[in-house]
C-alpha cells in the first residue's frame, strides 16, 4: 500500500513537468514578450466577453447631467461629451475591436489560404495570371482599399469587417502560395494523385495542412493591423457608427476640440488602441519566431 502510494506520487511528480502551468511558465521564460502579448490579448478577450457583468454604466445612453467629468472615484477615466463613462465604453469597445480583428483576419487569411494553395497546386498559366491579379490588388495600400470598399458598401460593423478582410486576401495568398509551391513537389502529393484522388481532396487534405505555419503567421499578424484599420476607419467616420462603442470612434467627433478642456476623452481610447495593437503584434512576432525561425530577421 505504502509502496504503491509512493509510486503514485512519483508518477504525479513526473507528470507535473508537463502540466499546463509548467508549459505556460516555459513559454514565459523562452518568449517573455510574446507571453506578455498573449496575456494582454487574453485579458482583452475576458473583459470583452464579460463586459455586461464588469461595468456599471450604460455604454450608449447619454446622460447630460454628467458631461465632461474628469477622472474620479466614480468614473475612473472620466466621461465624454455625452456624459457616457469612458472606461465602460473602452471595455465595450474591446468587444468591437476583437470582433472585427478576429473575424476580418480569419476570413481574409482563410480565403487567401485557399486561393494561394489552389494557385500553387494547379500552377502553369493559371498560377501566373492569378499572381499578377494579386500583385495588382496589392498596389493599393490597406486603408485605401478598405476605403474604396466602404465607398461601395457603406458603413457599419459588418461592412467594416468586409472592407478590412478584402485587402488581407492577396497578402496571405501570396505568402501561402510560396510555401505551397514547395509542398507540391513532395512525393506524397504525387502519390495522392496516383491513387486517383480528386483535386479538392488533394488540396484540402494533403496541401492545406502542410502550409498551416505561414497561414497562422499571417493570421496573427493581421489581427493587430485589422484593429488599427478598424480604429482608423471609425475615426474617419467611415467605420463602426455611433452609438456602438468603438475605440476609434471615441476619438472622433471633436476629441481634438476637447483636447485641452477634457484631455481624458482622447487619451484613454488612444492608449487602448495602442496597447491592444502592441499586444497583438508581440503575439504575432512570437508566433512567427516559433513557427518559422527563418523569417526571424524580417
Amino acid at each position: 500500500m505504502a509502496v504503491s502510494e509512493v509510486a503514485a506520487e512519483g508518477i504525479v511528480l513526473e507528470d507535473s513537468r508537463d502540466t499546463f502551468g509548467q508549459k505556460v511558465w516555459d513559454l514565459v521564460r523562452r518568449k517573455p514578450l510574446g507571453a506578455a502579448g498573449a496575456f494582454v490579448v487574453l485579458f482583452l478577450l475576458v473583459i470583452a466577453l464579460l463586459a455586461d457583468f464588469i461595468t456599471v454604466y450604460d455604454p450608449v445612453k447619454n446622460s447630460y447631467d454628467s458631461m465632461h467629468v474628469p477622472p474620479n472615484a466614480e468614473h475612473w477615466m472620466g466621461t465624454d461629451q455625452f456624459g457616457r463613462d469612458i472606461l465602460t465604453r473602452i471595455i465595450y469597445g474591446a468587444r468591437t475591436a476583437l470582433l472585427v480583428g478576429f473575424v476580418a483576419s480569419f476570413i481574409g487569411s482563410t480565403l487567401g489560404l485557399m486561393l494561394g494553395v489552389t494557385s500553387a497546386y494547379f500552377g502553369g498559366r493559371f498560377d501566373l495570371i492569378f499572381q499578377r491579379i494579386m500583385d495588382i490588388f496589392m498596389s493599393f495600400p490597406l486603408i485605401i482599399m478598405a476605403l474604396a470598399v466602404v465607398s461601395i458598401m457603406g458603413t457599419g460593423t459588418d461592412k467594416v469587417i468586409f472592407a478590412i478582410m478584402i485587402p488581407f486576401i492577396p497578402r496571405c495568398a501570396r505568402v501561402v502560395r510560396a510555401s505551397a509551391l514547395a509542398v507540391r513537389e513532395i512525393p506524397y502529393v504525387d502519390a495522392a494523385r496516383t491513387l486517383g484522388f480528386n483535386h479538392k481532396r488533394i488540396i484540402l487534405r494533403h496541401m492545406v495542412p502542410n502550409v498551416m505555419a505561414p497561414y497562422l503567421i499571417m493570421l496573427t499578424s493581421f489581427m493587430g493591423q485589422a484593429i488599427l484599420l478598424e480604429a482608423s476607419l471609425s475615426y474617419l467616420g467611415l467605420g463602426v457608427q455611433e452609438p456602438t462603442p468603438a475605440w476609434g470612434l471615441m476619438l472622433q467627433g471633436g476629441a481634438e476640440e476637447y483636447a485641452e478642456s477634457a484631455p481624458w476623452i482622447p487619451i484613454f481610447p488612444g492608449l487602448a488602441i495602442t496597447i491592444g495593437v502592441f499586444a497583438f503584434n508581440l503575439l504575432g512576432d512570437a508566433v512567427r519566431d516559433t513557427l518559422d525561425p527563418r523569417l526571424r530577421s524580417q
Partner: peptide
C-alpha cells in the same frame, strides 16, 4: 514597436494637446 502600434491620428491628437498645453 510602439511606433507600429500607435495610430498616427492619436499621435496627432496628442501632439496638438501637447502644443496647446506647452504654449499655454
Amino acid at each position: 514597436i510602439s511606433g507600429i502600434a500607435m495610430p498616427s491620428f492619436w499621435l496627432g491628437i496628442m501632439i496638438i494637446l501637447g502644443l496647446l498645453i506647452i504654449t499655454n
